[in-house]
């Protein structure tokens, strides 16, 4: 690449017959799709932020997300979502290693790293399924209209309101219901992200089958793995911001 800058200067990028951006059409369009998808996710997260800024009270994520599978009622704030975050980061790393193997036309390497990426994606989805189930079915004693009710977190009920001073039930502080929008935004946005993960896993499985059948070997390049990789990294990128907005701040 030592001569690249000179070649870049001399090349008539805009005179036709070549990509002025030096990328293949499909890859460029994947970039533009991802940019538009960034605005879709951005709009959802900003809408969530607007509603949250308009409320005097918002549930503390450390209290809502403090459970871990097989840990019973242990108070482990953010532990499970950290695990999910690391699973997604690691699957992003295995994806970039698959792309790297593709650059060397290393079919075995691509297959190995694609399998690991798919395993990571499925593990993430399994974690999300557990988290959703726990939130929806996990009952909490809440004061509603002067009576104690046991409700879970759904798109219409939110048990994570402010605590009532001095009111106890089964050894726990009794709270009131919180802003209803919490469940809607949480399930809506993590669901939309989870759907991206699901479609990413499906795309990766298709890429794996095509690699195993030698489609890219015959074609002479593994550009399709790069494009699937862009999508997969974008899913990880969006999770950075979902993690930020719902769990950290």
């Amino acid at each position: 690449m030592a001569q690249a800058p000179a070649a870049e200067m001399e090349t008539k990028w805009w005179s036709g017959g070549r990509s002025p951006f030096n990328v293949e059409y499909g890859k460029l369009m994947m970039w533009y799709f991802l940019m538009s998808d960034a605005f879709t996710f951005g709009a959802f997260l900003i809408s969530y932020g607007t509603i949250r800024f308009s409320q005097n009270f918002w549930p503390d994520p450390n209290k809502v997300f403090n459970a871990f599978p097989f840990a019973g009622h242990a108070n482990l704030p953010l532990a499970f979502v950290s695990l999910m975050t690391f699973i997604l980061i690691v699957s992003s790393v295995t994806m970039v290693l698959a792309v790297h193997a593709g650059h060397h036309n290393d079919k075995k390497g691509v297959i190995k790293w694609m399998i690991w990426t798919i395993v990571g994606g499925i593990a993430f989805l399994a974690c999300q399924a557990w988290e959703w189930t726990h939130l929806i079915t996990g009952d909490h004693a809440v004061m509603v209209n002067g009576a104690i009710e046991h409700i879970g977190t759904t798109v219409t009920r939110n048990p994570w309101g402010p605590e009532l001073p001095g009111v106890m039930h089964d050894g726990h502080h009794v709270g009131t219901t919180g802003p209803v929008a919490f469940g809607g935004y949480f399930f809506g946005i993590t669901g939309f992200h989870g759907f991206h993960v699901l479609s990413g896993v499906v795309i990766n499985i298709i890429m794996l089958i095509m690699t195993m059948n030698g489609v890219f070997e015959k074609r002479g390049h593994y550009l399709m793995i790069e494009k699937a990789g862009l999508y997969w990294h974008f899913v990880d990128l969006v999770w950075v911001f979902v993690f930020l907005c719902f769990y950290l701040i």
Partner: peptide
């Protein structure tokens, strides 16, 4: 190794 649209190829 890649599409004819691409002018400068990255070293792998």
């Amino acid at each position: 190794q890649s599409s004819p649209e691409v002018t400068l190829h990255h070293e792998p």
